[in-house]
Design a protein around this nucleic acid. Structure first.
Lengths: 228, 228
DNA sequence: GGCTAGGATGACCGCGTGGTCATTGACCGG
DNA sequence: CCGGTCAATGACCACGCGGTCATCCTAGCC
């Protein structure tokens, strides 16, 4: 989570790491809590305890600052995805999925602000980014999921008659909503997902896997269970 | 889509229906395209071609106006849900689901602005509503889905070992993302969901049903298909 | 000590916001 | 024809925004 060495003006990059960090953290906090448009440079200035003039010498515009913050958040997200992929590379598909969600919860716990920025980014359409950039962002996670599915399919772990791209999109949507509900009070707080304890999270992961693995339909040859 | 008779001040409610409609439509357009915070009363005034003073005599504050618009959008959404429920009441569960999505696409086609407001509302957290109200909104659709699932379960159409509330939440998340991607350019436009033609939409509905019905796992006793 | 280079500073600018209110003028009953 | 009622109006207000810039301050050098 160190401040990116690429962001900001030459002056900003020449600051001591401590000061860079201080300014960057202030920006992250502000954008995470208010989104792009409602975040205020005045507010960043207050949080970082620097003067307004300095901030605008470090980043030419509000959008420059936001770009820097987003760049950093994306690096962190990509790292986390890569790490999960590597750590689970030999595992069965549905175990990988479980680990992926768990890692998502973990990411939110350790980088709550970055998580907020990332999810806000891909969901709100309220950012200063154009359509092209947004599509690219969505592709990042969709293609990650599609890769996992392709892997599993080539290993014969899942059905082969699935449309991989579409299923990847859907499964990804499911995961993203799950993660979002994990840190959002008003989505599923009655169901123990928002700040749920370990048992709750286990139940959610289990239900997710069950749904994605076997679906809701009754097995063709029902074995032990029956209706009314 | 007529302007709600409950919203606004006494003066607003005493206007001719035409004028009420004109003002209300302007507000809907503004809120749909910019969300709550970035919508501007000045803009509404210009669109509706009335004076600013008048608008504030019709609605005391920006939030009052937004409340009125949201109230109307919710009435419309509830109507659509009720209608789908009634029209499909005797049908098999997965057929109902298909119809539900189709109706969702239809709703977006016929009420694109209201759809935007509704989805923005339940997803952004950027509204002036408190947590309680937001939870209530989510419950609206989650419980609707849970009811459908309970129905199906009591008829023996689906597995009985599912956690209904959690599955309802997940399936609902899936549907909402699907609908959102249907009118959002930057989500899945490479996959033919955004403004897709009938064939594309059919494919999406089919994939959705397939995933939710049977899951991704290989059938225990594989019949005709095999890996590599 | 005097000089200079360049980072730090906050008063300031123009603008758009949500919201107000004195004035206007159309309408109506006597 | 008058007086009263009340909706319509837009100039106006305070505020917070992103962004600028003349000024200040200090570290380094001779």
């Amino acid at each position: 989570m160190s401040s990116s060495p690429l962001a900001g003006t030459r002056l900003f990059r020449s600051l001591t790491p401590e000061k860079r960090e201080k300014v960057f953290k202030a920006a992250v906090r502000e954008f995470a809590s208010k989104g792009y448009r409602n975040a205020s440079m005045n507010s960043v200035v207050k949080i970082a305890r620097i003067s307004k003039g300095s901030l605008f010498q470090y980043f030419r515009t509000k959008q420059d600052l936001f770009d820097g913050v987003v760049e950093m958040a994306l690096i962190e997200v990509k790292n986390y995805l890569r790490q999960v992929r590597e750590e689970t590379s030999g595992m069965p598909f549905f175990d990988r999925m479980a680990r992926l969600i768990r890692a998502g919860f973990g990411f939110i716990d350790t980088h709550p602000l970055l998580a907020r920025i990332y999810f806000h980014l891909i969901q709100s359409g309220e950012t200063p980014f154009g359509v092209e950039r947004m599509l690219q962002l969505h592709k990042l996670s969709d293609e990650f999921m599609a890769d996992l599915i392709h892997d599993a399919m080539s290993r014969g772990e899942i059905r082969e008659d699935l449309d991989v791209e579409r299923v990847a999109f859907l499964v990804n949507a499911l995961m993203e909503t799950l993660l979002r509900a994990y840190y959002t009070e008003f989505m599923a707080s009655g169901l123990g997902l928002y700040r749920g304890d370990e048992a709750d999270l286990d139940a959610w992961v289990a239900t997710f896997l069950e749904l994605v693995h076997r679906g809701m339909g009754r097995p063709k040859e029902a074995i032990g269970q029956s209706a009314t």
